[in-house]
Design a protein around this nucleic acid. Structure first.
Lengths: 207, 207
DNA sequence: ACCTGAACACCGTTCAAGT
DNA sequence: ACCTGAACACCGTTCAAGT
């Protein structure tokens, strides 16, 4: 993780900068992601960072895209070897929580990315990563949903509700509000899985 | 909402400052909550704000406590005239969403409040408001939960899962990610209610 | 006592000058 | 071309000086 780029090697330099940023962000949080420290960590001057990323926000977005892609890889692994719907829920939620701990608090970047009606060219990677994640989530729903659900309860609707529960759980356990009760992550995720999957099953059975 | 305090009236002055802060925060978001603008909005100089709130964070916390208290008032109204569990869920979620739109993105304040093992005296109002909200949420669960749940699925465990879904839904609809699908808030909240309440019922019936 | 506003500290960002 | 680092802009915060 020590900077390795030599003079003029823009590819390695960019990697050094992202490495330095990732280290600050994941170890000390967003407030510690300061451009002077990123520069120092990458072994360059402050001005140089700006020849690689036009703004701090762009550096953050690049790191976020990287994290979303890793999360997507985990989703693909889960999709490749699915267990029961309950097990899949807990696996997805756990994978998400680890990302959320680092990036969840500052999702404002999403609003930046989608602010313009036309997606700016530089935001394309962010959009692509987001679409990949959404597509995989829908596939997972499709692979695990019970038969017999009413037609208005389609894959996207189910995903939306399950996704809400997953992000909400991750928030409880990465923030400090988790301390308001003493259940473990595993217990909470399993209970959520039991309630959500059971509720979906009940809907399918026409209760 | 125009400043009204006269020289030396600390109570009215404090109200003017909070009014100015609340207006900036709710209309333009956290990034617009700048101390110089708060001061100007309250008709005082920048330095004066600091004789009422030791730091920007304390002003934010005071506004947040105010919002939590209003939310608690809404919870009490729901508790006083409960409908079906599904209806209660949608009512609570909707009340929460409106708060979340303004304060949800910057819940970091919670971590500040609970960081010390001993709660600092100045954070007591924040703690009190938080405990009031938690207590009401548990009461609502108690009033609406089905009979026959296994003993480990107690009120707090249920609240935790339902709360996760509510915060997650609010996040979907106040952020821009909501655009990833086109369901309305009402539709999404009702589906979540049907799944969660149905799942809890299934657990109680021993499925 | 209460209030002002210039000044300080900090951090994102720029740009003239170096190699 | 690539890189440096001093300088600028902005915003939270302080404090000597006013009333």
């Amino acid at each position: 993780m020590t900077p390795t780029a030599t003079w003029g090697d823009r590819e390695a330099r960019r990697r050094d900068i992202m490495d330095a940023g990732r280290r600050l962000l994941s170890q000390q949080g967003y407030a510690a992601l300061q451009m002077r420290d990123v520069a120092a960590g990458a072994g360059v001057s402050a001005g140089t960072v700006y020849t690689y990323f036009a703004a701090k926000e762009d550096l953050y977005a690049a790191l976020f895209v990287e994290a979303v892609d890793e999360f997507c890889d985990q989703l693909e692994a889960i999709l490749a070897a699915p267990g029961t719907p309950e097990q899949v829920f807990v696996q997805v939620a756990t994978a998400y929580r680890d990302n959320y701990a680092v990036y969840g608090r500052d999702l404002n970047i999403w609003s930046v990315a989608f602010q313009a009606d036309e997606i700016a060219e530089k935001n394309k990677p962010l959009l692509d990563a987001s679409l990949r994640a959404t597509g995989l989530a829908v596939q997972i729903v499709r692979a695990t949903r019970p038969a017999g659900l009413p037609p208005e309860v389609d894959d996207v609707a189910v995903m939306s509700v399950f996704w809400a529960a997953i992000t909400g759980l991750a928030d409880q356990f990465t923030g400090v509000r988790g301390r308001l009760h003493d259940r473990s992550w595993q217990q909470s995720a399993e209970l959520a899985a039991a309630i959500l999957v059971g509720g979906l099953r009940a809907l399918a059975e026409g209760h």
